[in-house]
Amino acid sequence: MAAANSSTSESIPVTPAAPGGRRAFSGDRVYAGALAAAGIAILLVALLIAATTANTARPALARAGLWGFITGRDWNPVEDIYGALPFIWGTLVTSVVAIVLAVPVAVAFAIFLVEFAPSRSRSLLRFVMELLASIPSVVYGLWGLFVLVPLLREHVEPALGRFSFLPLFRGAPLGVGTLAAGVLLAIMILPTIASVSVEVLRTVPSTLREGALALGATRWEAVRIAALPYGRAGIFGAALLGLGRALGETMAATMVIGNSPEISASLFAPGYSLPSIIANEFSEATSALHIGALAALGLILFVVALILNIAARLLVRAVVGKFERSSS
């Protein structure tokens, strides 16, 4: 055997894309170029969203300054006064209500689907989740306006009114308001949180569960001891994803929140959210300042959604990645 000698003149290194200039190669190059262009397009979309929104928002931010804009409490297009605080408040309150209501139900739903449901009903539960997710938000809004709002006005809000020592439940039961928006958003983000939680719980290795059961644990204890602690970060990520959706959800909130730029501690009071004001005023805005102020609200929404989504994806990926590696 000759000694290894890769530097001899007759040994030719091989590269996968050897230069040739033949027809077959140009086809490969065109194809690879097209694919790469599509990949680049994704990055471009991200840049485009950031750049276009920021650029459109500039006039308003230049006038009031970012901080002044965020803390401004008045919104009056006629006088060209624009402050974002009522909308940030409304978005915050509705999203928190939505998360508080949706997370327990969604996680319990996911636990039931993964851990307790008979295997035959699993696909049915999955189908329920998909259906919930596939109903357009404007249809939820329609339902919210004509079903949920009367229900809240006539039954739920009067009942909650007994707790009026809490500022949360003060005021006349109008139906429309932040409570209605929060409940509707909770229904809409339920499938998001549930499906990501299902994905997380399914990656928990069955050996963990079986180990707990073998020690004499009940099925619930096996879930509590084995599955939930390992999936905790992922479920938290699922909740963050749901929060991100609730913040940006437009139509449903717009139709039931009352559209009134007030900051109130009561959930019964009408409010206004970031997406709703954009939806309502953007097509009628004419001055660059008004459009800019609406775009600036969009920019706030975009940045917050971005942060939430990045955090959520990292959390979910950490959990799912960990178990996929260990199980393969």
């Binding site: 040994s11 290194p13 091989v14 590269t15 050897a18 040739g20 033949r22 077959a24």
Partner: peptide
């Protein structure tokens, strides 16, 4: 060479023609 990180060196001749020569189209 299609596998990730894989490469080959040396000479392979089929009917006296270089397989790893410059300008050789692996597809052909």
């Amino acid at each position: 060479e299609l596998l990730p990180g894989a490469r080959a060196e040396g000479r392979v001749l089929i009917d006296g023609q270089e397989v790893y020569g410059p300008g050789v189209d692996p597809v052909q």
